[in-house]
């Protein structure tokens, strides 16, 4: 086994909110898909478990996630958008989401997207009325344009790949390697016009960058969260249940409750 450096945790499985944010936000940032251009800085904050104004500034540059953190915090009376409870609510899910309410979410969507989407905004707003909550799966399934591209034969494959990897998914560790985990998880499928989770299959995900990891040791049998091709965190039974619940909620919304799922494909 090669030496792997891992950051400290406040207690087993418990890290400060900003560090939890890094664990989930780093994977898309690594690809340049979200947040500030310098992913190495973000990674170093997570690896060292360092929380300072610089990390907070980086987090504010996630134009997709940050407004949801602000919304959850303000709607639930939490002062800090990077409070661990708020960060967990957005990426994994917890009861804070149920306390946000449809009107604040609708107001947030209006402020962020009405001007950009023009007459299409009414389609985007459907998901709020249909029970959407400010969870990352809402953003992926109800706001991103990719659901609307699933019916296009030419774009289907890439659309499903983006949706599956951009959602935070869960799985159970089957093998621990130096720099990777072998995980059993359920892939996102699109069958008969519906998004659903398929039968469990094995996938391999990254856990370190140049021998440095964001999460301390894993063990076979652990339940973990994953984002793009990276493992994000170990999941407690409560977190696993929440991630499943809010993911299924937004799959239900996009499958059954919208007249125009994926209608927003372009700027208005």
């Amino acid at each position: 086994m090669t030496a792997t450096r891992m950051p400290p945790e406040l207690a087993p499985g418990v890290v400060a909110g900003p560090i939890m944010f890094v664990r989930y936000a780093f994977p898309p940032n690594y690809h340049g898909a979200c947040g500030p251009p310098d992913s190495q800085s973000l990674f170093e904050y997570g690896a060292g478990a360092v929380v300072d104004a610089g990390l907070r500034d980086l987090a504010r540059q996630f134009a997709g996630a940050w407004p949801y953190l602000e919304l959850i915090a303000s709607a639930t009376g939490v002062a800090d958008p990077l409070d661990r409870r708020v960060v967990e609510a957005y990426w994994v899910g917890n009861r804070l989401l149920d306390a946000v309410g449809a009107r604040p979410l609708g107001d947030s969507m209006d402020e962020r997207f009405r001007l950009r989407t023009g007459r299409q905004f009414v389609n985007l707003a459907e998901a709020v009325v249909a029970g959407g909550m400010p969870h990352h799966s809402y953003h992926v399934f109800c706001i991103y344009p990719w659901v609307g591209l699933l019916g296009d034969d030419r774009r289907y494959e890439q659309a499903l790949m983006v949706l599956d990897r951009c959602r935070v998914r869960w799985g159970q560790v089957r093998q621990v390697r130096d720099d990777q985990l072998v995980v059993e998880s359920r892939p996102l499928l699109f069958e008969h016009g519906r998004l659903l989770l398929g039968a469990p299959r094995i996938e391999t995900v990254e856990r370190t960058l140049n021998g440095v990891g964001l999460v301390p040791e894993f063990a076979v049998g652990d339940w973990v969260s994953m984002h793009w091709e990276w493992v994000c965190d170990r999941l407690t039974p409560r977190q696993l249940s929440a991630l499943r619940h809010y993911t299924r909620l937004h799959l239900d919304v996009v499958n059954d409750r919208l007249d125009h799922p994926g209608a927003i494909t372009a700027l208005g």
Binding site: Q61, F62, C166
Partner: peptide
Amino acid sequence: ADAADVADPA
């Protein structure tokens, strides 16, 4: 950061 939000994760 918005500009950075488009690059390739694909």
